[in-house]
Design a protein around this nucleic acid. Structure first.
Lengths: 256, 256
DNA sequence: CGTAGTCTTGAACCGCGTCAAGCTTGGTGG
DNA sequence: CCACCAAGCTTGACGCGGTTCAAGACTACG
């Protein structure tokens, strides 16, 4: 994947410059969750917003990275690519997830907006300095990184050992679980949800071709395990039955 | 995978109780690398050694985990399992790598000694308390965790998109690179190395069956890309040529 | 309407898994 | 010293799941 000569440059987004952290929808789930008072004021001073339309690239592998960020709304993906073009998604960032790596100034992955995305960015140098003098910020980031590592390991089990059918069922179950988590519920019974990814992106997530994704969704629909509403809409008549097909034991812990 | 009724219990290993941190072979690469003087003394007070023979289980998924540890010598694996027994390795811990997760008291994976292993264990509660009052220890662990996440993501690309042939070549290249790193060299030219895993464990690492692992090793040997010496010995006549087969661009960063 | 992007469906192929023997090596006991 | 055995590895034959290649169908948008 080559960077186009003129990448669609997206600068700071003044439309959100007035947003106060206190009003932020991810205030208590993002990296800043444990900051209060003066600390929040420090963050407020180094932050700026950037927005991206669905499909736009946020960062290219190897790009200079002068900021880290929280996803405020929308869904972003991280992908890696082999020389011949085969691509694998390696991260799926939902609201409150963290983008970037303190201590490294170049991006290791291609980051792209899967839907319209709003990022709350912190300039990297001030953020790293604040981490040095604010231990619990580093602790918060460590906890989030460990959660992400757990999720990556669940994902490895999926990629290495699950069948196409199980992969699709797992993916839908993961989205259902994360959506339920936003409402502080456990997923159960009949659930409606919207897939945040195209068929192609689902293939990149699951290590499948787009055709196999399509065929397995059709198969699950014909068996009554899911109902399909438009390109992105899914209704689960019975969440537990889908889980059984996913190969997980229901204790699934994947979260990032 | 069920825990056997009588798991081979392995207690503290008094044979190493006298080892001083100053003499430790992983002194400047493990989680304790940035500790000096009094901090090192604090760690020394909460540490104890445990040793495991090749094949023994270190921890079962769900086990109470009252310690965290550094791998001093040998190789340990982390694996996850589906209900029907399919297993996928999700972590490969070499000397200086960290085992365990501060802030969680139960193991998420099955940990096992792939070779004879010596662990330097820290009781979890004191270690967590020390992290609270020693910011750079938390920073060190964060950096190590981020490296592990990067490695996990390389691994996801391998599992999702590489062919069996590329997977085998990649694995051998990773072992060669890590072995070279111990000597602070870049891998190049003719290299002899010892595989730390059985064919079965390699299959679990790569998401392949044992038969496919065997066949691909045979194929690489017949093409002169590798030479085989006994069950575990490998000689690379030309590291660069192997890398070309692995599908990576040579800039591979996997480390954990 | 027409066109482009996305998704679905079909048919043929093939890489890897499955099942089933052999082989090699090291350990044990007669 | 050698027969025996178990564990780990290799090799072969075969079949299936998922990829590949190639058309269509649906939807959004001019």
């Amino acid at each position: 994947m080559r960077k186009p000569a003129t990448s669609p440059s997206v600068g700071p987004d003044p439309a959100h410059d007035k947003m106060r952290c206190g009003d932020c929808p991810i205030r208590y789930r993002a990296v800043c969750a444990t900051c209060e008072g003066d600390e929040l004021a420090q963050l407020e001073r180094m932050k700026f917003y950037r927005s991206f339309e669905a499909g736009q690239s946020i960062l290219w592998e190897g790009d200079q990275m002068d900021f880290v960020a929280s996803v405020v709304s929308g869904v972003a993906t991280l992908t890696q690519t082999l020389e011949d073009g085969r691509t694998q998604m390696v991260g799926l960032l939902l609201p409150s997830d963290f983008l970037g790596r303190p201590g490294r100034d170049r991006a290791s992955y291609h980051a792209r907006a899967a839907t319209d995305v709003l990022l709350c960015c912190f300039r990297r140098a001030p953020f790293e300095q604040m981490m040095q003098r604010t231990p619990h910020l580093a602790h918060r980031l460590l906890a989030m990184t460990l959660d992400e590592l757990d999720a990556a390991r669940e994902w490895m089990l999926l990629l290495g050992r699950k069948t196409a059918r199980e992969k699709i069922a797992s993916f839908i179950a993961i989205i259902a679980r994360r959506q339920a988590a936003l409402d502080r519920r456990r997923p159960a019974g009949r659930i409606a949800l919207e897939l945040p990814l195209s068929r192609e992106a689902m293939g990149d997530y699951l290590g499948l071709t787009i055709e196999t994704v399509s065929r397995q969704i059709t198969a699950l629909r014909q068996e009554g395990l899911i109902e399909v509403a438009g390109k992105r809409g899914i209704v689960l008549p019975d969440y537990a039955r889908l889980l059984a097909v996913s190969g997980d034991d229901g204790a699934g812990r994947a979260s990032a």
